[in-house]
Design a protein around this nucleic acid. Structure first.
Length: 470
DNA sequence: GTTGAGCGTT
């Protein structure tokens, strides 16, 4: 008893007839083959005039009252933007600098996973152009055989297109495909220069406080406050320019003076591979060193881009070590040989260090709170791109107050003497990394506020759904 | 013509 069902993408269009199955249901795949991206059907109830949704179960759409009848059904598409959540509308005041809308955000390449072997770049272009203008389409192939590797890349010209595209799964030539932000490249850097480090935070500053405060300057996309309290935070703006413009400034928040500086990259992705920053022995990583990507694609809280895993700002480099000049910017805190040379996070670290030494906030035994692997940040001052060799292995925050030595996570406050770290302490790579500040450790609970746009882009939670129904 | 989690010859 197969019948044809009238379907339109939008009200008022010319209907297209789709065949039902023998049991009277309509396969969602049948629907999405003709209406890409469609995830369901609805129709107007003639009695009440309101729209009614069609039951969807196991990939099948069920006729209302067991009969599709002659009425026209309308496709349902995933919402590009999620429902507006906790609208903190009371906060949008005193806009000092223009708040760029999220629509100004730049597109990035998107990886398309799960392509059928047969899909060509033309196929991709045909399919993805429904979301907007495409700047690039690639299907990755084996250079010799020309055989597709089953994935490709696309790039839209408009960020809205990207958002919409990423908000759903895609039926392409009979397979469900996922579109994601690639692990490698871009995104990382783009996000980084949108993020500022806020030092000397006080414990009563909540993420919402910070978000509200910094919203004056531009759209705040993320606020990250490590837990336990560590007297600093990260604030990400939609607009990198705004982030940059704030760097170096001191601001008063809740009566306390915070210092803003550029956020240092969490993972070291200098040359080549992922997460190689902690290569070798004991560079602070304690074993469970997940590589980027992997199968871990569920970034629950939103902004936890995959590049943030793995390596960290590893340790203080000792004077005379390979890649950084033995600069020693002393300071009045007895912090001694801070290797403040080439890298940007110095004053940031200093700010935090000052916060520690001036007794703001209680610093717990941080060294013990961190766990290995995931993006743990060590207490050093210099990013540990120690390159090869064992330099990256110095433990426990070379110049950091308290992280002295590699052995344990003594309370930094009580241990402010800048004891030089044991030089070749490569061996004890078990406890050292948490020495000083557990920077950006992904352990920290994300006390974040996320904008919808960000949720859609960086915070994709791609559930590992089965690859198809058919 | 086979395969099915991943991450891009330029």
């Amino acid at each position: 008893m197969s019948q044809y069902i009238k379907v339109v993408a939008e009200d008022g269009e010319e209907p297209l007839e789709l065949p039902s199955e023998e049991d009277g249901t309509l396969l969602l795949t049948t629907l999405s083959a003709q209406f890409p991206g469609s995830c369901g059907l609805k129709y107007r109830n003639p009695d009440t005039g309101t729209m009614r949704g069609i039951r969807l179960s196991d990939g099948r759409l069920y006729p209302p009252d067991n009969d599709w009848g002659k009425q026209v059904f309308v496709c349902v598409f995933p919402k590009a933007e999620g429902k507006k959540e906790n609208s903190t509308s009371s906060v949008e005041h005193t806009v000092v600098k223009p708040v760029k809308s999220s629509s100004r955000q730049k597109c990035s390449d998107l990886i398309v996973l799960g392509l059928p072997w047969k899909s060509t770049e033309d196929d991709l272009r045909n399919y993805f152009s429904q979301f907007g203008e495409l700047l690039m389409v690639q299907v990755k192939k084996d250079p010799k055989t020309g055989q597709s590797k089953g994935f490709g890349f696309v790039r839209f010209s408009e960020y809205e297109s990207q958002l919409k595209c990423m908000s759903q799964r895609h039926m392409i030539d009979g397979r469900w495909c996922d579109v994601r932000i690639p692990n490698s490249k871009e995104g990382a850097q783009q996000m980084m220069n949108r993020k500022v480090f806020v030092g000397r935070c006080t414990e009563d500053m909540t993420a919402e406080d910070l978000r509200q405060y910094f919203a004056k300057f531009g759209e705040v996309v993320d606020v990250f406050i490590p837990k336990p309290f560590r007297a600093f935070a990260f604030v990400s703006f939609a607009d990198p320019d705004i982030a940059q413009s704030l760097c170096g400034e001191d601001h008063i928040i809740k009566g306390a003076s915070v210092h803003i500086s550029g956020a240092a990259p969490k993972s070291s992705e200098k040359q080549g591979g992922y997460g190689t920053g902690m290569g070798g022995s004991g560079g602070g990583g304690m074993g469970g060193d997940r590589r980027l990507g992997g199968s871990n694609h569920s970034h629950l809280g939103g902004y936890t881009p995959s590049y943030s895993q793995g390596g960290s700002w590893s340790h203080a480099q000792r004077p005379g070590s390979s890649s950084n000049p033995p600069s020693s910017y002393g300071n009045n805190l007895g912090l001694g040989n801070l290797g403040l040379g080439a890298l940007q996070l110095n004053h940031a670290m200093l700010a935090a260090a000052q916060a520690v030494l001036s007794g703001q906030g209680g610093w717990g035994p941080l060294g013990l709170t961190n766990q290995g692997g995931a993006g743990m940040q060590a207490g050093g001052v210099v990013q540990g791109q120690a390159g090869g060799g064992g330099q990256g292995a110095i433990q426990g925050g070379g110049a950091g107050p308290g992280g002295s030595g590699a052995s344990n996570g003594d309370n930094p406050v009580t241990n402010s003497a800048p004891a030089p770290p044991p030089f070749g302490s490569v061996g004890n790579g078990t406890t050292g990394a948490g020495g000083f500040l557990g920077w950006g450790g992904s352990q920290a609970t994300e006390t974040s506020t996320h904008s919808p746009s960000q949720m859609a882009s960086w915070g994709t939670t791609h559930s590992k759904a089965p690859t198809g129904w058919n």
